[in-house]
Structures are given as C-alpha cells and as structure tokens.
Design a protein around this nucleic acid. Structure first.
Lengths: 150, 150
DNA sequence: GCTAACCTTTCCCATCGTTGGAAGGTCAAG
DNA sequence: CTTGACCTTCCAACGATGGGAAAGGTTAGC
C-alpha cells in the first residue's frame, strides 16, 4: 500500500505520515524496491488511532504515551485512564480561560453603543482595564493565549 | 526609558517588543545616542494595550486592526464593536470544540474501569470510534486541534 | 516502446508567537 | 579601571502543518 492510499484510508496527510516517521512517533515504514514506503493494514490502523487522538486534542507527545500503552499488551487500563483524565483537566482549564475572555469581551460589547461616536468603551477598557476582570495570571494567561489559524 | 523598563512597565517581554517593532505592529522606537531604544510613557501605554488584547485572545493581526482604530481619532465605535463581536464568536466556536472533546473523553473515562485489566475501553475507542460521537468535521476539527504548550 | 498523467522521494521554506543563546557594545556603581 | 547589569543584532528552535521544487517510479492508453 502506497503512502497516498494509506493517507486516504487513515485521514492523515502524506506529509504528516512522513513527519510522524521522521520524528519517531511511528516506526520507519518498509520500503518497496522502488523506494516507495509500503504500508500494511495494521499501519493504517495505527494512523487512524493517531488521527482520532489528534481530533480529540491530544498533543503528539501525549499520543506517544498512548501509543506505547497501546502497543504494550501488558498495559494497565489505569494508566490510560490517568492520561485521559489529565487531558480532560487540561481541556477544562483552557475552556475556562476562553470563557473568561469571552465574558470580558461580552461585557465590553454590551457597554458599547455601537454608533458613530468616536469614544468607544471597548478601546477605553483595553487602555485601562476597569474592573480588574483580568484574565488569570501572566503565567497561565499564556496557556489561554492561543494561536489563531487564519 | 530603556526597553527593560518599558518591558516591566507594560508586561511585554523585551524580546516581544523588538519583535512587534520588527513586524511593524508598533512603529520603530526612537534611539538614544548609544543606540538603545528609547520609550515614552505613551509607548508603554500602547504596549499595555497590546498586552491586554493578547490576554483577551486577540491575534496580532486583530490587534493591528484594533491599534489602527485606537490611533484613528475619527474611528467609529461600531467598527470596534464589530471586531470584538467577531472575536467573541470565534472564542465560542473554540469553546464548543473543546467541550465536545472533553465530553467524548469523559464518556470514555466513565466506561473505563481503571483497574489492572489490560483491555481498556479508551484505547479500544481510539482504535475503532464507537458511537460516532465524532468531533466535528475534519475541516473545523483543525480549529479545535490546538497547540499544547509544555 | 513511447508518452502523458500521476505518484513518490527528499529537501528546503513558511507559518505564528515566543523563547533562548551568542557575540559584542553601554552604562553606572565600586 | 573593573565588574556586572543592561542593551544591541543575528540566528535558531519550538509544534504541527502546508507549499513547492527537482528528480525518479508506475501505469494506462496509444
């Protein structure tokens, strides 16, 4: 099975499959005489595992942990549960940060007349934060300051 | 005022101040004879504006828009309101994605005994997604697939 | 067998916001 | 004058992904 077919079958782009191999997340694929990478159905299986975990928001590092457990037939259910729970906590922390941001912005928007007047309460608040409805701490604020993808 | 003092006063790291200048988000700073950048209180004011907007989750591109409006004394309150509202919508979309992820994971965790048995429902679900409690679409899933900072 | 269309390979570059370091110049206190 | 804290520029890295070039492999139709 060529990389393109494995890609379609797994939902992971060919680029990313090579990247995952390069960074050691997945083992080096077999090669055909032509030099083409050759994938088995079980490779595709693993790729779909990765894809699904990415969709659930796991980082590649976390997926590495999950894959070790997945491959380890003597793994303990408790280990997986622990990883998943930690991830849920992470997700909820991020959700709270985002909700805090949205709440602050909503407050500002509600105060904003939205008319033609040049004095806008939103800008005023950005200049001088009012009710110290401040986003958490500078440290944890970084966690909430997410990348925006255009 | 040196860059270090401006940094402390604004909460923006010196590195980032230089970066913002380099990318044109803020104008080039005045220089002292020594070549050191020289900041005025109003520069610090602008930096704090930026810092606060970052904390509220605005991207640098969005901050650019806000800064233009901020500097433009004939700006319309409505413009700012529109940007803020769009941003709130963005935040809420991301929150929903994260909540969907957390819900799926919670379901899995609840099904997981967490004992020593090696058959873990979480891993099983990652292998073969069950109830199609699938995270949105591949396209929008990208929006939810956020960067993790270690 | 030839050609066109498509696939794969490796390699490099870009993104976004941020941090780190190296090599060297400046400043203020001792 | 020396020392240490600061500043300068430049270069690289992170994580996950996409884009593209140049070169070679595979396959279908003629």
């Amino acid at each position: 099975m060529n990389i393109g077919q494995a890609s379609k079958a797994s939902g992971v782009s060919a680029k990313m499959i090579r990247y995952y191999e390069q960074t050691g997340l997945i083992p080096k694929a077999d090669r055909k005489d032509s030099g083409y990478r050759d994938y088995s159905p079980s490779d595709v299986h693993m790729l779909r595992f990765i894809r699904r975990a990415r969709d659930l928001g796991f980082s590649v590092a976390e997926i590495n942990d999950l894959l070790s457990l997945w491959r380890d037939t003597s793994r303990q259910s408790a280990d997986v549960k622990r990883i998943a729970q930690a991830h849920i906590a992470q997700l909820q922390e991020r959700i709270e940060n985002l909700e805090q941001m949205a709440a602050t912005l909503s407050t500002l928007v509600d105060c904003c007349a939205g008319d033609d007047r040049p004095d806008c309460p939103i800008l005023a608040d950005l200049e001088e934060p009012s009710g110290e409805q401040e986003v958490p701490s500078p440290a944890t604020a970084g966690t909430g300051r997410l990348r925006h993808r255009p």
